[in-house]
Write a protein that binds this DNA or RNA. Structure first.
Lengths: 243, 243
DNA sequence: TCATCATTCAAACAGTTGTTTGAAACCAAC
DNA sequence: GTTGGTTTCAAACAACTGTTTGAATGATGA
């Protein structure tokens, strides 16, 4: 009678995928060193040896966990930058647009729950301060092209600001973003539950506002202050403004 | 003939101190899990069993590494806030002063090389995203009083801004600061050597400028944007400004 | 049906982990 | 010198680490 009814169901992923999913979640929750092979295979309902069979070694598994997601993210980052450059006649883009594209894409990825976004982004944000040299080098290598292009775009967008200054601000923005993404439910040093319950939309709006405010802040007078004694307020200097 | 000549020399610290110093440096460089007892005792030129003799267990050693520095730092943070509150008649302090006191004190501590500042602060900055639950809880407990007082001061200083909004901005500022302190020579995702060679003075000036810019940024219109599609620029709203 | 391939599995591997032990060494006070 | 308490030391502990092995199982195509 009843032919096969097309019901929406979630087929069990193959072992390789189950291992990647489990590893991703555990790495995000407990870090690389603290996550053992046995935790991973147990969570993935796979045999202990299957990790080494499918990935070779733990380090290769870590690489693959990142590679699976990062490729698409950097690709979209670069695509958005391409689009911005196409849309401008002079090749110069408004700084705010650049920042929105770069960091906004990270938030977008974090919001994309369907692709395991939240879990991965927590992992990613945390990994930015990861001590493990192997992980650091891998991340840097994987991200280098996108970062360099956005950096150069910002240099062109802010001709009046020194590259050194711009890199510093990028550094600060990266820190704020990583912390915002990673720390949503991790360490909440501020002890507030408000932070925990945050959807991607409001996080995006708040973070962008903060980042652009920081980017547009008056340039500091470097070298004139003395940190060790009473710190002086950085005097306002001229700064480029963008729409 | 020659009586004992009073020469400036560095006496070898006792085993307990040597262990704490070595552990601090190793934790900062490699993380808690990746640092073994044997690494610590080897660097401290002490016997393996001496860690357990002096501290009991590894977790207790971690606690003591933090306790040794954090007490003085939070004390100075609270003292500066006291001073600010005494100096104001109304009890309301300028937001910039609050931010300068809170985050500036962290930079000051980082600059205080004599007390092992740089090493500890790198450790501290990294620990803000530390997965280890034990470490997280300990840090939160140790820092709770200072954080709460500064938070309340900011609430009073910005009566026009919702507490939720302020906590978010604090969150972002904390991320930027932690990354700036910890990441000076750690992961340099931006691939720039400029970042590495930074003295505390210029770091302070640049960070403060950025943080205050972010704090003063126009409030975002939350809930109106749609992250998933093309993200919209947060529209400017009114915001309190401080001198 | 058979051979071929990829995958799974229980068991073991050598090495490392944090911790404990009990004797030795040290050091002051008597 | 002897005592008593603190600190150091080499050695061992059980538990756990990532990885390997070789046989069993599964699926695929001829």
């Amino acid at each position: 009678m009843a032919a096969s009814i097309p019901v929406e169901y979630a087929p069990v992923p193959d072992t390789r995928t189950r291992i990647l999913d489990a590893a991703e979640a555990l790495f995000a929750a407990r870090g690389f060193e603290a996550t053992t092979m046995r935790m991973i295979t147990s969570a993935a309902q796979a045999n202990l040896a299957s990790v080494n069979y499918h990935f070779g070694a733990k380090e290769s598994l870590i690489e693959e966990v990142f590679r699976r997601r990062l490729g698409a993210i950097t690709a979209r980052m670069l695509a958005r930058l391409d689009e911005l450059e196409r849309a401008s006649d002079s090749g110069v883009i408004r700084p705010s647009k650049i920042v929105e594209a770069f960091f906004g894409e990270a938030i977008c990825a974090a919001a994309d729950e369907a692709r395991g976004g939240k879990v991965f982004m927590r992992l990613f944000g945390r990994t930015l301060t990861e001590p493990n040299e192997f992980v650091r080098n891998f991340l840097k290598r994987e991200y280098a092209i996108a970062v360099e292009r956005y950096k150069q775009a910002l240099f062109r967008a802010l001709p009046g600001v020194s590259p050194e200054e711009i890199v510093w601000r990028l550094h600060f923005m990266l820190g704020a973003t990583a912390h915002a993404i990673a720390g949503a439910d991790a360490l909440n040093l501020l002890g507030d539950e408000m932070i925990a319950a945050a959807d991607a939309d409001t996080l995006y709006a708040r973070l962008m506002s903060f980042l652009l405010g920081g980017l547009r802040a008056p340039l500091p007078l470097t070298g004139a202050n003395n940190v060790s004694s009473a710190p002086a307020t950085p005097k306002a200097a001229s700064s480029k403004r963008d729409g």
